[in-house]
């Protein structure tokens, strides 16, 4: 049976791991390669590395980091942050990344999804969407959640699926950093709407939150950062407990 995935997200700034609380306060938590390796030894199913200060200048540095990660780590990892062209993706996949995630650039230029899926296959195209519930409507936000748009999230993810996205990474800005649980209602709705895997992101604080994302939200994977970085929830313990609850988990 295919298992639900537990994913650790590592935000990268200047080659170091950082976790932003509500996207603002940054705090250094270590070396991305060794931290990723540690998590893989702990049994994490996948890793996501986000270059949160992506600029043209540090693109090369990030690609070099991707190669270091790929050499060291024997599980799949996704890289994202500031990816805006086929060339960017070519460099990152060529450096050893398994998947790339695109966000703002796909909203600005949806054809990018078709182009990437056509050239590299849907399996490596993760559509990341940051959204906020405004007056009962989930609205897409850009640039790490700072810039609101008039785009409704469910319409957008369905379009992204049709254009060839292979997975959706949905971060609820209302839940991110709160440790109060994932946006399960929205997740559930999205899971009914699209036929590609959905990664829940934003809000993990307890083991029950992960269980709810899977059982209530129907998510295929749950992503977290702080609870892992701060060792609030040790990964082996999390996976054991989820399995005891009857959730399909790789141990």
């Amino acid at each position: 049976m295919l298992t639900k995935r537990i994913i650790a997200c590592l935000d990268i700034k200047d080659g170091r791991t950082v976790k932003g609380i509500n996207f603002i306060n940054l705090r250094d938590v270590g070396d991305p390669v060794e931290q990723g390796y540690f998590y893989s030894e702990q049994g994490i199913d996948e890793l996501v590395y986000l270059d949160i200060t992506a600029t043209k200048e540090n693109r090369k540095t990030f690609a070099e980091l991707v190669t270091k990660i790929a050499k060291r780590i024997n599980i799949p990892f996704t890289v994202g942050g500031g990816i805006s062209s086929i060339e960017d993706v070519g460099i990152l996949l060529g450096s050893g990344a398994d998947k790339i995630s695109i966000n703002s650039s796909a909203v600005k230029n949806p054809d990018l999804i078709d182009q990437l899926a056509g050239k590299y296959g849907s399996q490596c195209v993760v559509l990341a969407v940051d959204a906020k519930n405004i007056d009962g409507k989930w609205m897409v936000h850009l640039v790490g959640g700072r810039v609101p748009t008039q785009i409704e999230m469910f319409t957008w993810v369905k379009e992204a699926e049709n254009r060839g996205a292979g997975e959706i990474l949905f971060t609820s800005m209302d839940h991110d950093g709160t440790t109060g649980g994932y946006a399960n209602e929205a997740l559930r709705k999205m899971s009914k709407l699209v036929n590609i895997p959905i990664i829940a992101s934003g809000g993990a604080g307890t083991i029950q939150h992960f269980a709810d994302a899977f059982n209530v939200g129907n998510a295929d994977a749950a992503l977290a950062a702080s609870v892992f970085h701060d060792n609030v929830i040790p990964i082996p313990h999390l996976k054991e407990e989820l399995r005891k609850m009857g959730i399909a988990i790789r141990i």
Binding site: M1, R5, G166, N195, I196
Partner: peptide, 11 residues
């Protein structure tokens, strides 16, 4: 009825 692609760890 399952999602396609299959992505993840299976036995």
């Amino acid at each position: 009825e399952l999602k396609v692609p299959q992505i993840g760890w299976n036995q």
